[in-house]
Lab assay of single mutants.
Amino acid sequence: MEQGTVKWFNAEKGSGFIERENGDDVFVHFSAIQGDGFKSLDEGQAVTFDVEEGQRGPQAANVQKA
Score class of each variant (00 low, 15 high):
M1T: 13
M1Y: 10
M1I: 11
M1L: 13
M1W: 10
M1K: 15
M1C: 12
M1Q: 14
E2C: 14
E2F: 15
E2W: 15
E2K: 09
E2D: 07
E2I: 13
E2V: 11
Q3V: 13
Q3P: 06
Q3T: 13
Q3E: 09
G4S: 01
G4H: 01
G4P: 00
G4V: 01
G4K: 01
T5K: 13
T5C: 15
T5E: 04
V6M: 04
V6P: 03
V6C: 08
V6L: 05
V6A: 02
K7A: 04
K7H: 07
K7Y: 04
W8N: 05
W8T: 05
W8R: 05
W8V: 05
W8F: 08
F9Q: 01
F9H: 01
F9P: 00
F9D: 00
F9M: 02
F9E: 00
N10A: 07
N10Y: 03
N10L: 05
N10M: 04
N10D: 11
N10E: 03
A11T: 11
A11R: 14
A11G: 08
E12H: 13
E12T: 13
E12Y: 13
E12K: 15
E12G: 10
E12S: 13
K13Q: 09
K13V: 10
K13G: 06
K13H: 11
G14W: 02
G14Y: 03
S15T: 14
S15P: 02
S15R: 11
S15E: 12
S15A: 11
G16C: 06
G16V: 03
G16L: 04
G16D: 00
G16A: 03
F17P: 00
F17D: 01
F17Q: 04
F17N: 01
F17G: 00
F17M: 10
I18F: 01
I18R: 00
I18V: 03
I18H: 00
I18Y: 03
I18M: 02
E19A: 15
E19R: 15
E19P: 02
E19Q: 14
E19L: 14
E19T: 15
R20N: 04
R20D: 04
R20K: 06
R20L: 05
R20V: 08
R20C: 07
N22Q: 10
N22H: 11
N22F: 11
N22T: 10
N22G: 10
N22R: 10
N22K: 10
N22E: 08
G23S: 05
G23P: 02
G23Y: 05
G23K: 08
G23I: 03
D24N: 12
D24Q: 13
D25S: 10
D25I: 13
D25N: 09
D25R: 09
V26C: 04
V26K: 00
V26Q: 02
V26L: 12
F27E: 02
F27T: 02
F27Y: 10
V28A: 01
V28C: 08
V28E: 02
V28K: 02
V28P: 00
H29W: 06
H29R: 05
H29F: 09
H29Q: 05
F30V: 07
F30R: 07
F30I: 06
F30G: 00
F30K: 04
S31H: 06
S31Y: 05
S31F: 06
S31V: 03
A32T: 04
A32Q: 07
I33R: 00
I33G: 03
I33N: 02
I33T: 04
I33Q: 02
I33S: 04
I33H: 00
I33E: 03
I33P: 03
Q34H: 10
Q34Y: 09
Q34F: 10
Q34E: 09
Q34G: 08
Q34P: 06
G35E: 09
G35C: 11
G35A: 09
G35V: 10
G35M: 13
G35L: 08
G35Q: 09
G35W: 10
D36N: 12
D36S: 13
D36Y: 12
D36C: 14
D36E: 12
D36V: 12
G37Y: 06
G37W: 06
G37D: 06
G37Q: 06
G37R: 03
G37L: 06
F38L: 07
F38E: 07
F38A: 06
F38G: 06
K39I: 06
K39Y: 05
K39M: 07
S40W: 14
S40K: 09
S40V: 09
S40H: 09
S40A: 08
L41K: 00
L41Q: 01
L41V: 04
L41T: 03
L41S: 02
L41A: 01
D42M: 15
D42L: 15
D42P: 07
D42A: 14
D42T: 15
D42C: 15
E43Y: 13
E43H: 14
E43S: 14
E43Q: 15
G44V: 01
G44S: 04
G44W: 04
G44R: 06
G44P: 03
G44C: 10
Q45G: 05
Q45S: 08
Q45D: 13
Q45A: 09
A46L: 13
A46K: 13
A46R: 14
V47S: 02
V47N: 01
V47Y: 01
V47K: 01
V47G: 00
V47P: 00
T48P: 01
T48D: 03
T48V: 10
T48G: 03
F49T: 00
F49I: 00
D50L: 13
D50Q: 14
V51R: 04
V51C: 07
V51G: 00
V51K: 04
V51Y: 06
V51W: 08
V51D: 02
E52Q: 12
E52T: 12
E52F: 14
E52D: 07
E52Y: 14
E53R: 09
E53N: 12
E53G: 07
E53P: 11
E53Y: 14
E53W: 15
G54F: 07
G54C: 10
G54I: 05
G54V: 06
G54M: 07
Q55W: 13
Q55V: 14
Q55R: 15
R56A: 09
R56H: 13
R56L: 10
R56K: 11
R56D: 08
R56V: 08
G57Q: 03
G57R: 06
G57T: 05
G57D: 01
P58F: 10
P58E: 05
P58V: 09
P58W: 10
P58N: 07
P58M: 10
P58C: 09
P58L: 11
P58Y: 09
Q59K: 09
Q59P: 04
Q59I: 11
Q59W: 11
A60M: 00
A60P: 02
A60H: 01
A60K: 00
A60Q: 01
A60D: 03
A60T: 03
A61W: 06
A61L: 10
A61D: 02
N62Y: 06
N62E: 01
V63C: 04
Q64E: 08
Q64T: 10
Q64W: 11
Q64F: 10
Q64H: 12
Q64P: 02
K65I: 13
K65L: 13
K65G: 08
A66H: 11
A66N: 12
A66W: 11
A66L: 15
A66M: 14
